[in-house]
Simulated scan of single mutants.
Amino acid sequence: MTHSNYLLPAVLCSASFLSIQANGADDFSGLDPFLVITPQSVSSSTEVGPPADLFPATNLIDSSGLSEELTPSSIEDVTHATSSVTNAWVTGQRGAANTDYFQEAGGPPVLTFDLAGPSVLNGFVCWGYSIEGNEARSFSLAFRSADNALLETLTFSSDEPIDSANCLFSFAPIAGVSKVEITTTDNHFPAAGGDRVGLGEVRFLAPAFLYVDSSATGAGNGSFLGGCLPDLTRRPRLGCGRD
Rank of each mutant, 00 (worst) to 15 (best):
P230Q: 03
L60S: 05
G222M: 06
L18G: 15
D27K: 00
R94H: 01
R242D: 02
D163Y: 02
N148I: 04
S63R: 05
R234S: 14
D163T: 15
A52C: 01
T155Q: 15
P72W: 03
F156N: 07
D147N: 12
S215G: 06
L229E: 03
F171N: 11
D53L: 03
S140T: 15
L115M: 10
A165N: 14
I37Y: 07
T99Q: 03
S43L: 09
W127L: 12
V110G: 03
S14Q: 13
T233D: 11
L60H: 01
L154F: 10
V202C: 08
A116H: 03
Y6Q: 12
L225Q: 04
A88Q: 02
G133V: 08
F34V: 04
V197L: 09
E152L: 15
L199F: 11
G239T: 09
N148Y: 14
T217Y: 00
L18Y: 07
T112P: 01
S63K: 04
L121C: 12
C240Q: 05
S63T: 01
N187R: 00
G198H: 02
L18E: 15
V90Y: 01
A105L: 08
G106Y: 03
D53V: 07
G92P: 02
A88F: 06
S130R: 00
G198M: 03
V78F: 00
A22S: 15
P108C: 13
G198C: 05
L210K: 02
P161A: 08
S178I: 08
E160C: 05
I162H: 05
R137W: 08
E152P: 03
A116E: 12
G24W: 02
D163L: 14
G194Q: 04
G226V: 04
G123P: 13
N221S: 07
L150T: 15
T46G: 00
S223D: 05
V120D: 06
L31Q: 10
N134E: 07
S29N: 10
D163Q: 10
G176M: 13
P9H: 10
A175P: 12
R235G: 11
R234W: 04
T217L: 10
I37G: 02
S29F: 14
S64D: 02
F189D: 09
S14K: 09
F169C: 10
P39H: 04
S83R: 00
L115G: 10
G200P: 05
D27L: 11
D231M: 00
N98Y: 05
K179L: 14
I162Q: 09
P39D: 12
S138T: 14
S73T: 05
N122E: 07
S83C: 03
N87I: 05
F113N: 08
S14N: 12
D53P: 00
S145Y: 04
H188N: 13
E160Y: 11
G222Q: 05
P39A: 09
S19N: 15
F189V: 07
V212D: 09
I162A: 08
A10Y: 11
S74P: 00
I131A: 12
P230R: 03
D243V: 03
T155N: 15
S45D: 05
L66K: 00
L168D: 09
G92Q: 02
W127H: 06
